[in-house]
Simulated scan of single mutants.
Amino acid sequence: MTPPRLVTVAHGTRTPAGNRVAAELTRAAGAMLSLDAQVSYVELCEPLLADVLAASPGPTVVVPLLLSTGYHVRQDLPRSVAAARSRVVLGPVVLGGPLGPDPLLAAAQVERLREAGARAGQPVTMVAAGSEDATTSADLTVAADLLGAAWGAPVRLATLAGRGSRMLDVVRPGDAVSPYLLAPGFFADRAHSLALHAGAGVVAEPIGPHPLVIELVARRAESLLPLPQAH
């Protein structure tokens, strides 16, 4: 039987550095599991998930590099995987869930806050891209609670779009701001600018290719193995 491969799927951005984060996470997680690994994207960057699945058919685990449930997780990705399953392939294609919320992401955020100079006990606002999807809002609430537990102090939540409160209404002067964002790009730039405008004392970097995130991607892929036998 053809060995399984890992395919990750990130949102995609017009910022090359953001797309490189997804590629680095994929390479490192694949190496950790001794699996061939290929990055793909939902939009704004190639290769797209559907093209990756079509180009090299075979037993595949698909791990979204997305931090919350939402439209892409519930609609776009299942459609792409269903299309792949409808073709003659060498093995099954199994789709995992989003990376977050998860304690490993919260722990990585804490390290980014410390790297940026945040002090123990300093008030924190976590900022996420946001969505109109109610499932995203529920996930973000859990993610903020996990960050608060890891940081040791309450964490307020703000979003840049969709449901939720906006940064200028949430961030207080002197806050540390933790972007709940995986990579550089439009939302990270917007979060940084608004945080400074609101008087934040510290703005952490996006979570990025942190070792804990690599571990999380590998765990999610491993949880999908062994793949069911194709019929």
Rank of each mutant, 00 (worst) to 15 (best):
P47I: 06
A23C: 11
A83Q: 15
R85D: 12
E46R: 14
D102E: 09
A107K: 06
Q38K: 09
R27F: 08
V89I: 13
T69V: 13
H72F: 14
A106L: 07
A50D: 15
D102L: 05
A23R: 11
V88Y: 01
E115D: 12
D36C: 05
V89M: 01
G30S: 04
L53H: 01
S40P: 06
V42K: 01
S34I: 00
T69Y: 09
P98T: 10
Q38P: 04
L48F: 14
V89P: 00
Q122V: 10
A108Q: 02
P57Y: 10
S86M: 08
V88F: 05
L95S: 07
A120C: 03
V110W: 04
L35A: 09
Y41G: 01
P103H: 04
L104D: 14
L25T: 13
E115A: 14
Y71K: 12
A83H: 12
G100H: 08
L33D: 05
V81L: 01
L90E: 10
L44H: 15
V63A: 09
E115Q: 12
A106C: 08
R87K: 06
P64A: 13
V81I: 11
A83T: 11
V63E: 03
T60Q: 08
L49V: 11
A54W: 02
V81K: 00
L44F: 15
A82S: 15
V73N: 14
G30L: 02
L66H: 05
P98M: 07
V42S: 05
A29S: 13
G91A: 08
G121L: 11
V63C: 07
S56I: 00
L49N: 04
D36M: 02
G121C: 06
D102V: 02
L104I: 01
V93P: 00
G58S: 09
D76M: 07
C45N: 13
G121V: 11
A120S: 13
P47L: 13
A23L: 07
G91F: 00
